[in-house]
């Protein structure tokens, strides 16, 4: 005969404690989100009690650190948009071509060597990219573009694009290789060339996955800080001219953080209002990408 309910209550209790601790670590992730939103909102609320939200959204100048203070976020948004646009204009064609090439053309061994090498691009610290943009790319471009300023959106955007290439190429490649084999075979079976198969069948079939990679790349570029802080300048201006110094939202936050802005002042709060703007952009982009991804998974299941 055996004794099934011999009491090991200490064991049972410690199991419960451990589960509680694990639960706690999992819920910390929620606290982080709550913390981010709370911090951004509470400081922004104080900010908007002094600056009207209409001015924030419509004023065409951003000069919180000068005597004549103006609080229009548009110049920072424009700077962010400009560098992001250039980065995507560089990364998308190259990244997508790489994805197609590796999937349809390249040999297995070539792919096995190239993919980790491309990943190296994503591991290099962004401050290093910034150095590269400022000291190599800008002087190089100045040989061809006479009006190019020492700080400009163009170099920063191009280098950011190079950094983002592996993001687009690997996510797009995953999407393309997830297309059912039968579809590809059908295309080849009808005598398509690799190019026709790639653009006629594979890319359209993988379009939602490719779109996700682009959106995530945009989100990454919008939030990128050090490259633009080093190479794009610190002059907020409402322009789409890539040759002159501009300022992005992220650069502005760094600029204020480096200075001696007293805590609790209006200038201090501007970085939270700017941060909130940035957060809204990236949050929206990320959620759009999840939404697309979810629909896309349903399609193939």
């Amino acid at each position: 005969m055996f004794h099934l309910n011999s009491t090991f209550s200490t064991l049972r209790k410690s199991e419960k404690i451990i589960e509680g601790l694990l639960w706690l670590s999992a819920t910390i992730t929620i606290l982080v989100t709550v913390g981010i939103i709370w911090v951004l909102l509470s400081e922004s609320v104080s900010f908007f009690s002094e600056v009207s939200i209409v001015e924030f959204l419509t004023e065409k100048e951003w000069t919180p650190l000068f005597a004549d203070k103006k609080f229009g976020i548009l110049p920072l948004v424009a700077g962010t948009f400009l560098t992001t646009f250039i980065a995507i204009a560089v990364a998308l064609p190259i990244g997508l071509t790489i994805a197609i090439y590796l999937n349809e053309y390249a040999h297995g061994t070539f792919r096995a060597i190239i993919k980790p090498l491309l990943e190296v691009l994503a591991t290099i610290p962004t401050v290093v990219y910034g150095f590269f943009a400022l000291t190599v790319v800008t002087p190089f471009l100045q040989q061809f573009i006479p009006g190019l300023a020492g700080f400009n959106a163009l170099s920063a955007g191009i280098v950011m694009g190079i950094m983002i290439i592996p993001m687009i190429s690997s996510l797009s490649e995953d999407a393309i290789s997830a297309v059912p084999r039968s579809l590809r075979e059908a295309a080849y079976g009808m005598g398509s060339t690799r190019l026709q198969t790639a653009f006629g069948v594979m890319v359209p079939a993988a379009s939602s996955g490719i779109l996700v990679s682009i959106i995530l790349a945009i989100s990454r570029a919008v939030g990128e800080t050090m490259i633009v802080a080093i190479a794009a300048g610190q002059q907020p201006r409402l322009t789409l001219n890539p040759l002159v110094p501009i300022e992005t939202i992220t650069t502005y936050i760094v600029q204020v953080s480096l200075g001696d802005v007293p805590h609790g002042s209006l200038e201090y709060r501007t970085i939270f209002a700017a941060g909130l703007t940035l957060f809204i952009f990236t949050f929206a982009l990320n959620n759009i990408s999840f939404w697309i991804k979810k629909k896309y998974q349903e399609k193939y299941d």
């Binding site: 982080v32 913390g35 981010i36 911090v39 951004l40 995530l216 989100s219 919008v222 939030g223 990128e224 800080t225 992220t250 936050i253 760094v254 953080s257 970085i271 939270f272 941060g275 940035l278 957060f279 990236t282 949050f283 982009l285 990320n286």
Partner: peptide, 10 residues
């Protein structure tokens, strides 16, 4: 997907 600089503000 939250930019690193936002973590800085947090």
């Amino acid at each position: 997907g939250v930019p690193s600089i936002i973590y800085g503000l947090l």
